[in-house]
Amino acid sequence: MTDHHDTAVRPSTLAWVRGHLAAGERIVRTEALHGGISAEVRRLTIATAGGGTRDLVLRTFAGRERAPEWLVREAAALTLLAGTGVPAPRLVAVDPAAAHCEHPSLLMTHLPGRTALDDEGLEARVPLLARQLVAIHALRPAERPVAYETSTTAETVVVPDGADRAAWAAAIDVIREPPPPGEGRFLHRDFQPGNVLFDATPGGPGPVRITGVVDWAQPSWGPADLDVAHCAANLALLHGPEWGLRFAGAYEEAGGTPAAERSARRYWLVRDALSFSEEVEVVSEPWRQAGRTELTTRAVEGRLDAYVVALMGAFG
Rank of each mutant, 00 (worst) to 15 (best):
99 A>P: 02
99 A>L: 14
100 H>Q: 12
100 H>Y: 10
101 C>V: 03
101 C>A: 10
101 C>G: 05
101 C>T: 11
102 E>T: 14
103 H>I: 03
104 P>K: 04
105 S>L: 01
106 L>T: 06
107 L>V: 04
107 L>A: 01
107 L>Y: 02
107 L>N: 01
107 L>I: 07
108 M>Q: 12
110 H>R: 14
110 H>C: 15
110 H>Y: 10
111 L>C: 09
112 P>A: 10
113 G>A: 04
113 G>K: 03
114 R>Q: 08
114 R>F: 01
115 T>S: 10
116 A>W: 02
116 A>I: 05
116 A>K: 03
116 A>S: 11
117 L>Q: 01
117 L>M: 08
118 D>R: 10
118 D>Q: 13
119 D>I: 05
119 D>P: 00
120 E>K: 10
120 E>Q: 13
120 E>C: 04
121 G>A: 05
122 L>E: 05
122 L>T: 02
123 E>M: 10
123 E>A: 14
123 E>S: 12
124 A>E: 11
125 R>V: 03
126 V>Y: 00
128 L>R: 03
128 L>M: 07
129 L>C: 01
129 L>R: 00
130 A>Y: 03
131 R>Q: 12
131 R>L: 08
131 R>W: 02
131 R>N: 11
132 Q>Y: 07
132 Q>C: 09
132 Q>A: 13
132 Q>L: 13
133 L>S: 04
133 L>C: 02
134 V>K: 00
135 A>T: 09
135 A>N: 09
135 A>E: 13
135 A>W: 00
135 A>P: 01
136 I>V: 15
137 H>K: 05
138 A>H: 09
138 A>K: 06
139 L>E: 08
139 L>V: 10
139 L>A: 05
141 P>Y: 09
143 E>H: 14
143 E>S: 13
144 R>L: 15
144 R>P: 11
144 R>I: 08
145 P>K: 03
145 P>L: 04
146 V>M: 13
146 V>Y: 07
146 V>N: 11
146 V>T: 12
147 A>G: 15
147 A>K: 08
147 A>R: 11
147 A>N: 11
148 Y>D: 05
148 Y>L: 10
148 Y>W: 15
148 Y>A: 06
149 E>I: 14
149 E>Q: 14
150 T>K: 12
150 T>R: 15
150 T>W: 09
150 T>E: 15
151 S>C: 12
151 S>V: 14
151 S>A: 15
